[in-house]
Design a protein around this nucleic acid. Sequence first.
DNA 1: AACGGCATTTTTGTATACAGACTCGACCAG
DNA 2: CTGGTCGAGTCTGTATACAAAAATGCCGTT
Lengths: 239, 239
Amino acid sequence: MQQRIKAVLRLREMILDGELAAGSRLSEPMLAELIQVSRTPVRVALVQLEHEGLLELLPGGGYRIRVFAEKDIFDAIELRGTYEGLCARYAAESGASALELERLAGHIAGIDEVLESDQLSEGDFLRYMEINQQLHDCVIDMAHSPMLAEAMNRIVTLPFASPSAFVLVHAEIPESRHVLTIAQHQHHSLYEAIADGEGSRAEAIAREHARSAKRNLQIVLRQQDAMDRVPGLQLIKRG
Amino acid sequence: MQQRIKAVLRLREMILDGELAAGSRLSEPMLAELIQVSRTPVRVALVQLEHEGLLELLPGGGYRIRVFAEKDIFDAIELRGTYEGLCARYAAESGASALELERLAGHIAGIDEVLESDQLSEGDFLRYMEINQQLHDCVIDMAHSPMLAEAMNRIVTLPFASPSAFVLVHAEIPESRHVLTIAQHQHHSLYEAIADGEGSRAEAIAREHARSAKRNLQIVLRQQDAMDRVPGLQLIKRG
DNA sequence: AACGGCATTTTTGTATACAGACTCGACCAG
DNA sequence: CTGGTCGAGTCTGTATACAAAAATGCCGTT
């Protein structure tokens, strides 16, 4: 593998997993030593992660691991929802093909299956997360807009959006089942809106879906020890 | 000035002004020679402009100046409008301060002044463009969300959004006066919605404002020779 | 004449050396 | 004891050297 890609992947991983202290300054020689590459690929990785929003460039030069305020994260989720709403609108208004609708329905049915379990296991959470990701990607694809798909990747990488974090979050909160059921209702509504070509409704549902995610995060953040257990949350400064 | 910044600014300028052929592959030694820096800052600039969306990374390595389809540009404008709409909503709902509203009103009044001229000169267009930029930045500031402000900068740099392009566009199309007047009406409506705290209305107006810009661009693109005269348009492949 | 393979030559990716800027700490003066 | 200043050490930014990969063009073959 190319050193440059190795550096980006490893550095991102180290930041999100908390191997590097949130807010700390990063020195190129240190990272080069940790990742076992020279300073050049490290430098490229730093530039890239700064654009992704995980690092900030210091005035005097050098980089620091960014610390997010709670509001930053909520705004980022709102933004993501707005953006997905636009994709949903495009998907509905561009006239989805039968094949695409079938794929979308397939993902939703997959989640229905997962939720049939009486007691949700860790594996169930992982599977939900996996299908959920595919479902959202599917809606983005259905917008048929390379520009929108690309812009999605430019939005700040949400620091807690890893599968393992998802599992931990849902394994911890008692409302988990309720929360996922509501989300799935929204998925069904979204499908109908897109299938019926109702752009405005599809957009509204996608945005509301993101607002639900915001509320869920709030529940998690209220638990005092969440930060210690959920990878990524250490990047959020408690308000 | 730092070489790294020099490289980014100069490279972006060369791309947008058409000094480098759209779609052409860029070699680092060539750029280093052109910009009069070594390959290292050139490389950083390439990474950065790829994230800005002006370059694309080739599979085998190396970069190429990106060529946009017309749809890409329209989608980017729609996206920008959606983001600005979200900012406008935040601005309205967070309760704008008297000082902020005054600043916003000031910008709008400035544009009113420009539009009072019987015949709009090139200077008038430039001044309109300048104030218009301040006005839009002002709305983004009023959202009080660093995250949204930052995301705005991550959206693809629109290849024709330079002041000189604006002047050329408006000097060429006969509908110019009409177009600017409509835009200014939207500015006034937006102010009222924000001042009244009507988030949904503010958002709708901002989005409609962007759709108007889309229509104006369509008018320009229909003129066969537009590409030759307006810097940046050579990056758009005619459909 | 067209196509494919091989050699040449450029280009990228990577490593490293060097100069200037900055940081941090120790030491000295008040 | 406190504050400032000086200096050693470290870091960033930049340039450049080197190897592997890719593109190019040429020649032979079909």
